[in-house]
Computed example of a mutant assay.
Amino acid sequence: MNYRNATIEDIPEISALQQLYHVSTISDADKPDGFVTTLFTEEQFRGLIETENGLAIACDGDQVVGYAMAASWDYWSAWPLFQHMIQDLPETEYMGRMLSVENSYQYGPICIHKDYRGTEVLPNLFEFSRTQMHKRFPILITFINQTNPRSLKAHTEKLGLDIIKTFTFNQNHYYELGYNTSKRTPNSSPE
């Protein structure tokens, strides 16, 4: 398994993986095993790669089997949900400090092909993404829809993220989670 930053050439495979597991297109059979809720266009993937270098991928040979997004709040500020989260940062404390656009970034979504779930891919992909962003920010922030218990369990039990609080946006209920980016990801393989 290879973990690396995505390139423009990887976008078609990343888009295909997103299509499999997005909440609007996922099969009913796959939905209980987790899904992604934010839909990205190929142009938005391109922007994430070019402006933030924030799209980490897991490859099995030449096949993209997982991706994890991470970027500054500036990148995410075009989406209403992230605008809501940005406005709430000064009201949110984590690791003994109030959050800000300077000391935190938004991680996710992460998407892993079902054939690779429950393997080392999740912790190793998260770890690769964390090491890229740790150079810029001490705190990772993310959110998980409360209707996605598998994702919550994976992030809290396998990756060690902390639930900071809950919030509601657009009649959806979310957990907000945080992680200290100076900490190595539990269950990740040594470099």
Rank of each mutant, 00 (worst) to 15 (best):
Asp74Val: 02
Phe167Gln: 06
Cys111Glu: 06
Ile8Asn: 05
Phe169Arg: 02
His22Ala: 12
Leu152Cys: 08
Tyr116Gln: 03
Phe35Cys: 05
Arg130Ser: 02
Met95Lys: 13
Phe128Asn: 03
Ile11Thr: 01
Lys165Leu: 12
Asp162Thr: 15
Cys111Asp: 08
Gln83Ser: 08
Gln171Asp: 06
Lys165Asp: 15
Ala68Met: 11
Asn172Ala: 07
Trp79Asp: 07
Val64Asp: 01
Cys59Met: 15
Asp10His: 07
Lys183Cys: 12
Phe169Ser: 01
Lys153Asp: 10
Ile139Val: 15
Glu102Pro: 01
Lys153Asn: 09
Pro186Gln: 12
Glu157Thr: 12
Leu159Glu: 11
His22Asn: 14
Asn124Ser: 10
Tyr174Gly: 00
Val36Met: 10
Phe128Met: 08
Pro149His: 12
Pro149Ser: 12
Ile163Lys: 13
Tyr21Gly: 09
Glu42Phe: 00
Gly108Tyr: 00
Glu191Asp: 10
Ser24Phe: 09
Glu9Asp: 12
Gly34Ile: 09
Lys165Glu: 15
Gln146Asn: 11
Glu50Ile: 09
Ser77Gly: 04
Ala56Gln: 06
Phe40Ser: 10
Glu50Lys: 13
Asn170Val: 02
Tyr105Asn: 03
Asp74Arg: 08
Glu127Val: 04
Thr185Ser: 06
Asp115Ala: 14
Ile11His: 01
Ile49Asp: 02
Ile8Tyr: 07
Pro123Gly: 11
Leu125Ile: 05
Ile11Lys: 00
Glu50Val: 09
Gln63Ile: 13
Glu176Tyr: 00
Glu43Cys: 02
Ser15Asn: 01
Tyr116Asn: 03
Glu9Tyr: 03
Arg184Cys: 06
Ile14Thr: 09
Gly54Asp: 10
Leu152Val: 11
Ala16Thr: 05
Leu81Cys: 08
Glu9Phe: 02
Phe128Asp: 03
Gly66Ala: 06
Thr168Leu: 05
Thr7Arg: 10
Glu9Ile: 02
Gln106Asp: 01
Gly178His: 00
Trp73His: 11
Lys31Tyr: 13
Ile86Glu: 06
Pro190Met: 09
Glu13Ala: 13
Lys135Pro: 00
Pro149Trp: 12
Gln44Ser: 11
Cys111Leu: 04
Arg97Leu: 10
Thr25Cys: 13
Asp10Tyr: 03
Asn187Phe: 09
Lys114Ile: 04
Gly118Met: 07
Arg97Gly: 14
Asn180His: 14
Glu127Met: 06
His113Lys: 14
Cys111Ile: 04
Cys59Val: 11
Gly160Thr: 08
Lys153Trp: 05
Gln83Leu: 07
Ser189Ala: 14
Leu99Lys: 04
Pro186Ala: 13
Met85Gln: 04
Thr37Lys: 06
Tyr67Thr: 04
Gly96Asn: 14
Met1Val: 02
Thr166Gln: 13
Ile163Val: 15
Gly47Ala: 10
Ser24Asn: 15
His84Arg: 08
Lys165Tyr: 14
Lys183Asn: 15
Thr51Gln: 14
Asp88Val: 02
Ala68Val: 05
Asp62Trp: 03
Gly118Glu: 05
